[in-house]
Amino acid sequence: MRILLIEDSATVASQICEGLGLRGHDVVAVGDGAAGFERARATEWDALIVDRMLPSMDGLLLVKTLRSEGVRTPALFLTALGLVEDRVEGFEAGGDDYLVKPFAMAELVARVEALGRRESRLFSASQSLADLTIDRLARTVTRGDRIISLQAREYELLDALLTETPNVVTRTMLLERVWKIRFDPGTNLIESHISRLRSKIDVEGTAPIIHTIRGEGYAARLG
């Protein structure tokens, strides 16, 4: 991915460039809001990472102006402002995702890579993993010759996992994508749904596909 990072902290920018670079991504870092805005509108990027508090042009205005000009590049906001209203402001300005500082590099990488895949996912009518297939037009799921009946949340959960396969999807990402919740309620909501989904997908005699990755989240993968 070609990623534009607009972040005025040289230390944070260096860490992000290193973390994404280890994944093979090409990151260009800009430390000024106005300069970042010009780079974002002049070149095609796969994703933008934008700090909210920037010199010369703040991140909210930057993304909002890009959207008004028709630039649809997926944008992830970085900020120390973690209140619900702060997150809402970010999404209303046109941001696609929001990560509060300090953050784990693995979380940033997962979110940025998910944004990069978003456009292609919109045009993918179906997807398969081994003998498991999800048809997004018909909203049906099959494994081999077996038709699997899923409740709405179970379907969305499986779809979220398959679109990121074989990558790990964190709890926070699942809460945001499936339940539209932008905070962790501290319940076993995800665990109970994963358990029911696994009981329908990974029946006896089939290779496990739904995996719990301890300390990280969940993934749809073989083995």
Rank of each mutant, 00 (worst) to 15 (best):
P55L: 06
V30Y: 09
G33Y: 08
E85N: 09
R146T: 10
A10I: 06
T212M: 05
E113S: 15
P166W: 02
G24D: 08
M173P: 00
L197W: 07
R143A: 12
T43M: 09
M57V: 03
M53H: 11
T165I: 00
I210N: 07
R67D: 04
L189G: 01
V178Y: 06
Q151W: 01
S128W: 04
G21T: 05
D135M: 07
P74L: 08
E38W: 13
I147D: 12
I201T: 06
E85G: 02
E18I: 07
P208I: 02
L222P: 03
D32C: 13
S14L: 14
R87C: 05
V169R: 09
L20W: 15
S14C: 08
R139N: 03
I181Y: 09
M105R: 11
R41P: 00
V109I: 15
E18Y: 14
G223D: 14
D8F: 04
Q15W: 11
R111V: 00
L5F: 11
L132K: 12
A42K: 12
Y98G: 00
Y155T: 00
L132T: 01
F77R: 07
H211I: 04
E89Y: 03
M57P: 04
R153E: 11
G223A: 13
R153V: 06
P55T: 00
A125R: 15
S195N: 13
L161Q: 05
H193Y: 02
C17I: 08
T212H: 14
G223F: 10
A80W: 04
N188M: 06
I6D: 04
A40D: 03
W179R: 13
R72N: 06
S56W: 09
A34P: 02
H193Q: 05
R221Y: 02
L175V: 01
A138Y: 06
I213H: 10
L162G: 02
Y218K: 09
A219M: 08
L175S: 01
K180G: 00
W45Q: 11
E156V: 00
A130G: 12
A29G: 06
I213F: 10
A29D: 05
E156R: 13
D145T: 08
D58W: 03
R72S: 06
V12Y: 03
A152P: 03
T133D: 06
E119F: 13
L76C: 03
D32Q: 15
E85R: 15
R118I: 02
E92W: 09
N167P: 00
T65K: 15
L5C: 09
S192D: 07
R121K: 11
S126E: 14
R23D: 09
G90W: 03
D8W: 11
S128A: 14
K101Y: 04
E154Y: 04
G116R: 10
T170E: 05
R146A: 10
A114T: 09
E191Y: 09
Q151Y: 06
R118M: 10
I181R: 15
M1W: 10
E164N: 13
R177M: 00
V112Y: 13
R117E: 07
R143W: 07
R214A: 11
G186L: 09
S128E: 05
D86V: 01
L129H: 06
S120L: 12
A93W: 07
G31S: 14
D135N: 15
A207K: 14
L60F: 11
V168H: 05
W179L: 08
E7K: 08
R118L: 13
M57A: 03
E191R: 15
A110Y: 12
G217Y: 10
M53S: 10
Y218V: 04
A130I: 01
G205N: 11
V84G: 01
